[in-house]
């Protein structure tokens, strides 16, 4: 033979799967909630998202360039982080803050730990937690107020700020539960997304649609979202607060706030969630328990972000105890 034959270890064929294709599916799934955000919050939500994505891409490129590591932009993981980060911000968030968040997510949380697949905290959520100290992020713009939201520049957020549905439910704040049903309708406001909130969290319908897309494309398994949402649903149904019925209270908890965004897109992040089936169930349940705990007993109106970040730290443990049953051990004798 004149030509060189490749000799390598089996297998000699590979599935048509790639990291890039997976991340592309993530981006596609994230477009659903983004579209609703643009509709309800105006173009600034799109420009802020685009800016955050750009920052993530630039920081990733510069970090790897400066440290003479191979360029990793092709895997498309930086844009995914960028979109997820901007989804946790209110539309009124200033651009510089998005840039700070992107730097923290990409450089501190992701690249310093070795890059894609090596970080143990979800970059977008860790950055969001880092930014939580800024007061500007605690106010949320009411939807359909876009005439007052300029695409560029800053504005007086307080003038158009509105409390989020969850903060109504917060016992430590002024309880105005009697006004809730008139202000928010289940369908239009909570399910479709016409509520104050962060860019990507408002539309339950679109988040579920995006999640469904990811499950159908087999990018994620539904274990973590189901366990996460199911745990929150069960606990809030059984132990409602604020004098409303369990069913109503449960729906508020599921449909408003960051639960669906967190359960579908954040808690399923590959790098920071278990790979074993049982570990994934446990992870989802743990996220749910902590979310309810924070929502009930902490000063924060939200709990999803910190719940997921805390669970991120025990992923290795969950995988250790969640390993599948050993083949040939403990099988049940069912003769066919």
């Amino acid at each position: 033979m004149d030509n060189q034959l490749t000799v390598s270890s089996s297998p000699h064929i590979r599935a048509d799967e790639s990291t890039r294709a997976i991340m592309l599916d993530m981006l596609i799934a994230l477009v659903f909630p983004l579209a609703v955000a643009v509709y309800f919050f105006g173009w600034r939500s799109l420009s802020l998202t685009a800016f955050t994505v750009t920052c993530c891409v630039v920081f990733e490129y510069l970090y790897r360039k400066l440290l003479k590591k191979p360029n990793s932009l092709g895997d498309l993981s930086a844009p995914v982080t960028g979109m997820l980060l901007s989804f946790t911000l209110p539309v009124s968030a200033p651009y510089w803050m998005a840039a700070v968040g992107a730097f923290f997510a990409i450089v501190v949380v992701k690249q310093l730990y070795g890059g894609l697949g090596k970080n143990f905290l979800n970059p977008a959520l860790a950055a969001r937690a880092f930014l939580a100290g800024f007061a500007a992020l605690s106010v949320h713009v009411a939807p359909l107020s876009d005439p007052r939201v300029p695409i560029l520049g800053s504005f007086d957020a307080d003038a158009i700020a509105q409390a989020t549905p969850l903060s109504y439910l917060k016992p430590v704040e002024q309880l105005r539960l009697d006004r809730l049903p008139e202000e928010f309708s289940w369908w239009e406001n909570l399910f479709l997304g016409q509520i104050p909130g962060a860019i990507g969290e408002v539309s339950a319908a679109m988040l579920l649609l995006g999640g469904l897309y990811l499950v159908i494309r087999r990018v994620i398994t539904p274990r973590i979202p189901l366990a996460f949402i199911g745990t929150v649903a069960l606990l809030t149904f059984l132990f409602p607060r604020g004098g409303i019925g369990g069913y109503e209270y449960m729906l508020y908890n599921l449909l408003s706030g960051g639960l669906l965004l967190g359960a579908v897109f954040m808690a399923t992040d590959y790098s920071t969630s278990p790979v074993t089936p049982r570990g994934q169930w446990a992870f989802g349940i743990g996220c749910g328990l902590l979310t309810v705990f924070f929502r009930y007993f902490s000063a924060m109106p939200e709990g999803v972000c910190f719940a997921i970040l805390l669970m991120n730290t025990v992923v290795w443990l969950l995988d250790k105890i969640g390993a599948p049953r050993r083949f040939g051990r403990g099988w049940t004798r069912r003769e066919g």
Partner: peptide, 16 residues
């Protein structure tokens, strides 16, 4: 680059 997607765990017929 391992992205920890867990597909290898899903497909392993030896439960590894």
């Amino acid at each position: 680059i391992c992205i920890r997607c867990g597909r290898c765990v899903r497909v392993c017929p030896a439960h590894l």
